[in-house]
Write a protein that binds this DNA or RNA. Structure first.
Length: 568
DNA sequence: GCCGTTTTCGGCCCGACTGTTTTCAGTCG
């Protein structure tokens, strides 16, 4: 669908037609359950933004593996042009022009033409354009070489964003400063950093900002807007507005683009025009500036929508009728049920982990080291596990202020058996099961393994259910509906693993699972004291999944978890 | 292409910056 959208863009088709395909592409990409199956069951049309034409194309693709409409587009334009079009600074118009007038069919052609100065004579282009194109190709090549997916983990970017915000807030001319964009929405990965500032002296703010040592270069600068790049290869956009319209700017640049489109559409139907500079009742034409985001939403008749929900996933309708969820917050998490120690691949002792957890204010902590088949990590045999349990019990008696529990992250073996006998598992306080091998099995087989584990009465949760590693490995294809139903039926929890490159379950999957009655746990999977920060990333993902305190099991006391599961 | 407490047709978010086009198109977010 995305490829069709790109081709239509190149072909100069109606933007709304293009947007329709892009919306469908985004919808399918993020959709937690199989789009192909939904299509076959005739349920695709129920999805917002899917109509007759797109449904037909999906069905055609499912049946034949191709789409004739797309094949015809491919015949008309070389595929390499799509890459050219995605270069920053290039768009459909320029791409089409260089294709038709300079014979460029792919990136290599473009590079040659730019080097030979053959582009500067085309309408709308000059020497500067060629220079920009060559730079863009260089960056693109570096990214494509694989060391960089272009999207960085939120956890890697946020500390730098906080530094920038602190530097801005320290300026005397600055009334307020925040980071916005996908970072503020707690997306697991971000492409760039958006900074917004309230000030009456944008010139001074931008001048001071441009001197920060983290910035490699300033790429563009206007009166209120500055674009720069950091040495870490991150693009930073800075926008400055007067304090009385700070709320408008923050709202606008927090996005998402989809949320803003939906919000503006909603506002327009009620007679308002929203931009980053204010809210305008169309009738009066009077421009109302908002110092806070809450005012923006309030003016058009909505409750305040937390940034994590701003993805055009029904939040506007929910805000309209006062049905927004009361999202879980980090302090709600009372215990961590999945951490490691130096008994396997953790880096510090049981005691150090326990003290770190207590310092973070947790009420209970369950050690779930690896089981024996993960030899690489020094996985625990039944004997060593019992020895560890004895040490945990002794530690629990000695350390005040936190309850220490003995558990295991037991491997679900390739044949579906668990890596430890039931009689061993039955002696533990908590058991989480997970897959570390047999990733390439057919999805249905993997589901059988997970579901089989969940039906074992000793197993209390499933750790990192999809096995994905962001930027490194796709997860195995999980059937979240099936997992959620079995979870609800057996009282097994599904983990939201807080590791920055896992965040697994994803927000979308967690939201679906909660809707089907499953309960989740947010865990750090910490291997060292610093990893307890993972709880923060995990809670961010949970919030993006619309989860409330009640959807998570470890927001309650340990006693509420310790109880036997229903039916066992 | 999608969609409907303004509509089955006529809408669909909006403004800044760049580069070069002397009045604005293209791109971006």
């Amino acid at each position: 669908m995305q490829t069709i959208a790109d081709y239509l863009d190149l072909d100069g088709q109606s933007t709304y037609r293009i947007i329709a395909y892009e919306k469908a592409a985004a919808l399918f990409r993020e959709h937690p359950i199989s789009v192909a199956e939904m299509a076959q069951q005739g349920g695709l049309r129920r999805l917002p933004g899917v109509g007759e034409a797109i449904e037909k194309k999906v069905l055609e693709y499912v049946a034949t593996g191709d789409i004739e409409f797309l094949a015809r587009l491919r015949d008309r334009f070389p595929e390499g042009l799509l890459t050219v079009m995605r270069l920053p600074g290039m768009g459909p118009k320029k791409t089409k022009a260089i294709h038709e007038q300079a014979g460029v069919a792919d990136l290599r052609d473009l590079e040659r033409a730019a080097r030979e100065g053959r582009l500067r004579d085309l309408p709308g282009m000059g020497a500067k354009t060629e220079e920009n194109i060559l730079r863009a190709i260089e960056t693109w090549t570096a990214v494509a070489a694989g060391q960089d997916s272009g999207r960085k983990l939120r956890a890697a970017v946020e500390p730098q964003a906080i530094k920038f915000v602190e530097a801005l807030r320290a300026l005397p001319q600055v009334a307020a400063a925040d980071f916005a964009g996908s970072l503020r929405r707690c997306r697991s990965t971000v492409r760039d950093m958006d900074l917004v500032v309230a000030s009456l002296d944008p010139e001074a703010v931008m001048a001071a900002f441009a001197t920060l040592p983290e910035l490699a270069r300033v790429e563009a600068q206007g009166e209120t807007k500055l674009a720069a790049a950091t040495y870490t290869g991150l693009n930073v956009d800075l926008r400055v507005v007067p304090p009385d319209s700070y709320g408008d700017l923050l709202q606008h640049f927090t996005g998402s683009a989809e949320h803003n489109v939906a919000l503006r559409g909603y506002a327009q139907r009620r007679g308002y025009k929203i931009s980053e500079y204010g809210v305008e009742p169309v009738e009066s034409g009077r421009h109302i500036r908002c110092a806070t985001e809450a005012e923006v939403y309030e003016l058009v008749g909505l409750r305040y929508i937390p940034p994590e929900l701003r993805e055009d996933q029904g939040e506007i309708q929910a805000a309209e009728v006062g049905m927004l969820p009361d999202l879980v917050e980090l302090p709600d998490v009372r215990g961590d049920l999945h951490v490691h120690s130096d008994w396997t691949d953790g880096r510090v002792s049981l005691e150090q982990m326990a003290l770190a957890a207590r310092d973070r204010g947790l009420d209970y902590l369950c050690f779930c080291d690896h089981s024996q088949s993960l030899a690489m990590t020094g996985g625990l045999s039944p004997e060593r596990l019992m020895a560890q349990q004895a040490e945990i019990r002794a530690l629990d008696a000695r350390i005040e202020g936190i309850r220490l529990l003995s558990g295991i992250e037991v491997d679900i073996l390739a044949d579906g058996r668990l890596d430890l006998p039931d009689e061993t598992l039955a002696r533990l306080d908590f058991v989480t099961a997970s897959i570390h091998s047999g990733f390439s099995q057919p999805p249905a087989r993997i589901m059988e393994r997970i579901v089989g584990a969940m039906r074992n009465p000793c197993v209390r949760s499933v750790a990192h259910p999809s096995g994905r590693l962001i930027n490194r490995r796709e997860g195995y294809e999980i059937d979240i509906d099936l997992l959620a139903r079995v979870a609800a039926e057996t009282g097994t929890f599904l983990e939201i693993n807080g590791f920055p490159d896992r965040l697994d379950l994803t927000a979308q999957a967690a939201r679906r699972a909660a809707a089907l009655g499953a309960r989740m746990v947010v865990c750090s999977d910490a291997h060292s004291p610093g990893d307890f920060e993972n709880l923060r990333w995990g809670v961010g993902e949970a919030r993006r999944g619309w989860l409330t305190k009640a959807d998570l099991a470890n927001t309650g006391a340990w006693e509420s978890i310790a109880e036997k599961r229903p039916g066992h």
